[in-house]
Every structure is written in structure tokens, then in C-alpha cells.
């Protein structure tokens, strides 16, 4: 319950921040959008659109602006400055693409990361360990906007296997974006899994199990593994932020029509209501997903349950 209250508080704060920044940032947003030489009528119209002044042209205090923004966005009456369509309608149309991409990246990371971690821990100090750790190091240090074009160079240009841009080729279009986005998370998963297996493996009950004469394989899969996979959930929670922010970059490179690309397009078009809408939707998802991973973590490990 207190968690839910916290989410409400955070979202309230986030909406205040997003509207407030536009209000408090030095310089008039109207100047920025229209340029300094705008006519008085154009300025007035945009100021009204942005909720900065009321119908008579009197400036609105921030509280009034904020209430106006919230009431518009909650009734889906917040309109794009360029296309005049409701911001949330547009976002809803693009959101599934981002969700598919994020989900595919997480699934990819969950499939690859722990597996590599288990292998590395099992063959500790041997070549699979070194190889796995090297791949993980790459995953952590290669920026997404470097990895993605390199993948394009190899798998779209040199060997034209996957499409270079867009989302029209079904699963084939998804492979490279999901890989670029999920690789870092896979690397962190691998490191955590490896470390926690090694830690668990050195603990007493495993030593006991070994001493009892259980085979190495049984010890691993029955005891070590079960306890070591806990961090998987933690890592998803930890890396979710960079995943969502990275989606903006990945969507740009692959022309993937999600809300990250929508955000960049709207910034280019100085479509502030749309930009605000997208930023808030991403923040909302992030907060909710964090709540979910916290809950999941509690379910798996009763020891960390906080009341």
C-alpha cells in the first residue's frame, strides 16, 4: 500500500517537473518555438495552446498551468502542436512497438545472460569462463549507438540478412534492434549470475552436499543454481532504466516506429505537448515496472520482504 502511495507521489512529482521545467527554464518557450521575430497574434495563439495565458491573454500562474495540463491530458484533450491530434492517441498507437522491442530485449537477455553465467561459473578459470567474461565486458562497455551500426554493417550491409530499418519485415526486423538493446542487460545478467553462483558454491550447505558425495552436477543444478538465479530479477530492475532510455537511441538507428522515435520526431518539430506526453508515459512505465520487479523480488525471496 505504501508502495502504491509512493508511485502516486512520484508520478505527481514527475508531472509537476515536466510541466514546470518548460515554465521555469530561462527563456520563453514561445520564443524558442516561434523564433524572436514572431508576430503578436502567433505568439498569443501558441501561448494559449501551451496554456501559458488564458483566453483573454492574461498570464496563467504555474498552478493554473499545471491543473490545465493535467485536466487536458487526463481527458485526452492535450493536442499535438503540429498535427492537432490528441497526444495520447498518437502515443498509444506507437507504444506497442516500444513494448515489443523492450520485451524482446529482456527475453533475449534472460535467455542468454544467465546461461553464459552458469557456464562461466561451472568452468571457472577455463576458456568458457574467459570467453564469457570477455563478451560480458563488451556488452557493458559498447554503447548501443556503436553496437547497433556495427551490427548493421555486418548483418545488413556485408551479409544482407536482416533489414536495415523499419518494422515491416516481422520478426526479421526485430532481431537486430532487440539484440542491440538487450546485449548490455545480458552482459550484466551474466556477471551477476556467475558471481552469485560462485558465492553460493562456497557456502556451507553446498560444501556439505559435496561432502555427502553428491555428484558435482547435482550440486550445481539442485542447490547452487536455485539460489543463484535470484539476482536475475534484480538485474532486470536495475537495467530497466538504461533499457528504456536506450530504446530511444536504438529506435532512431533502426527506424523502429516506437515512442522513442516519436519523442525524437516531436523534439525536431518542437511539438512540446507531444514531447511532454512521451516523457511522462516512459516515466510512468518505468515506475510501474520498478514496482513490479520489487513485488516479484519479494515473491521469490521472502527474506527481503519489507512491510
Amino acid at each position: 500500500m505504501s508502495k502504491l502511495l509512493q508511485v502516486l507521489w512520484v508520478m505527481l512529482g514527475a508531472t509537476v517537473l515536466v510541466t514546470g521545467l518548460l515554465h521555469w527554464v530561462p527563456g520563453d518557450p514561445v520564443d524558442y518555438i516561434l523564433g524572436e521575430q514572431a508576430t503578436q497574434e502567433a505568439r498569443l495563439k501558441l501561448s494559449q495552446d501551451l496554456g501559458l495565458v488564458d483566453a483573454e491573454g492574461h498570464p496563467v500562474r504555474f498552478v493554473g498551468q499545471y491543473v490545465g495540463f493535467i485536466s487536458k491530458i487526463s481527458q485526452n484533450k492535450l493536442l499535438s502542436y503540429r498535427t492537432r491530434e490528441p497526444v495520447m492517441t498518437r502515443i498509444a498507437a506507437r507504444l506497442p512497438y516500444t513494448m515489443i522491442l523492450a520485451l524482446a530485449s529482456i527475453l533475449f537477455a534472460l535467455a542468454l545472460g544467465p546461461l553464459l553465467g552458469i557456464i562461466a561459473a561451472w568452468r571457472r578459470g577455463e576458456w568458457p569462463d574467459y570467453l564469457g567474461r570477455f563478451v560480458a565486458l563488451l556488452g557493458i562497455s559498447l554503447p548501443k549507438f556503436f553496437l547497433a551500426p556495427m551490427l548493421l554493417l555486418v548483418f545488413s550491409i556485408y551479409w544482407p540478412i536482416f533489414p536495415i530499418s523499419g518494422a515491416t519485415d516481422g520478426l526479421m526486423s526485430l532481431v537486430l534492434p532487440a539484440f542491440s538493446l538487450g546485449f548490455a542487460m545480458a552482459a550484466v545478467q551474466m556477471r551477476f549470475t556467475r558471481a552469485s553462483i560462485l558465492e553460493v558454491a562456497s557456502q556451507d550447505y553446498i560444501r556439505t552436499a559435496r561432502a555427502k558425495g553428491l555428484s558435482e552436477r547435482v550440486v550445481y543444478f539442485k542447490h547452487a543454481l536455485r539460489n543463484a538465479l535470484m539476482p536475475v530479477v534484480t538485474v532486470v530492475g536495475l537495467e530497466l532504466g538504461s533499457l528504456l532510455a536506450g530504446a530511444v537511441v536504438v529506435e532512431k538507428i533502426f527506424g523502429w516506429p516506437g515512442i522513442g522515435l516519436l519523442l525524437l520526431e516531436s523534439i525536431e518539430q518542437l511539438d512540446m505537448p507531444m514531447v511532454q506526453g512521451v516523457v511522462l508515459v516512459i516515466a510512468f512505465f518505468y515506475v510501474v515496472m520498478n514496482l513490479f520487479t520489487d513485488w516479484l523480488y519479494d515473491q521469490i525471496d521472502p527474506r527481503v520482504r519489507v512491510t
Binding site: P160, P163, I164, S165, G166, G255
Partner: peptide, 14 residues
């Protein structure tokens, strides 16, 4: 419609 410049090249090459 192919919006990306590199993608257009690739379509022709392929």
C-alpha cells in the same frame, strides 16, 4: 515507403 536512406540503398542492392 522506405524512409531510411541506407535502407533504400539496400532495397536496390538486394
Amino acid at each position: 515507403v522506405v524512409r531510411d536512406g541506407n535502407a533504400r540503398l539496400l532495397e536496390l542492392i538486394k
